[in-house]
C-alpha cells in the first residue's frame, strides 16, 4: 500500500512527511513495547503503536524505522513532531483502535514481518 492509501484507510491525519505519501510499503508491525520495536533487525515496517511520547520517536530513530502510525486517538506533541521532522519520518494519527487499524491494513494487503 502507498502511505497515502494507509492514511486514507485509517482515516489518519498526517503530521509530517507529507512529501513521502507516494511511497509503497509492504509490511507493518504493531506494538506498544519499544523493546519489541528494537528487535526488528533490518526491516523497516510501518510501525503502529499506542505509545505516544518522545521515546516513540527516539526508539524509531534508533531502529531506523521512519513510518509511525499513532493509534487509539493518541496525539503527538509539538516536540515529537519536530524531532520526527528532523529525522525525515512520516508520522500519522488515527482514532482507530490498534485491532481495527491492523485489521484494515491486513485487509488492504499489508504483510506481517513474522
Amino acid at each position: 500500500m502507498t502511505l497515502k492509501e494507509i492514511a486514507d484507510v485509517l482515516e489518519a491525519k498526517v503530521l509530517c512527511g507529507q512529501d513521502r505519501l507516494n511511497e509503497e510499503h509492504e509490511t507493518a508491525f504493531a506494538s506498544d513495547l519499544m523493546s519489541d520495536v528494537l528487535t526488528l533487525g533490518d526491516y523497516n515496517p510501518v510501525i503502529l503503536t499506542g505509545l505516544c511520547n518522545m521515546q516513540t520517536i527516539r526508539t524509531c530513530e534508533m531502529g531506523n524505522l521512519d513510518i509511525i502510525v499513532l493509534v487509539r486517538r493518541k496525539k503527538a506533541t509539538e516536540e515529537m513532531i519536530e524531532e520526527a521532522e528532523d529525522e525525515g519520518m512520516v508520522v500519522m494519527e488515527s482514532d482507530f483502535s490498534m485491532f481495527k487499524a491492523c485489521g484494515l491494513l491486513f485487509k488492504g494487503g499489508m504483510q506481517p514481518i513474522f
Binding site: 513495547l33 528487535t39 516513540t56
Partner: peptide, 16 residues
C-alpha cells in the same frame, strides 16, 4: 513501563 520499556528485554536485546 509507561515509556514503553521495562518488559525485561533490555539486557537480552543488548546481548543479541
Amino acid at each position: 513501563r509507561n515509556m514503553g520499556f521495562g518488559a525485561g528485554m533490555g539486557l537480552p536485546n543488548i546481548r543479541k
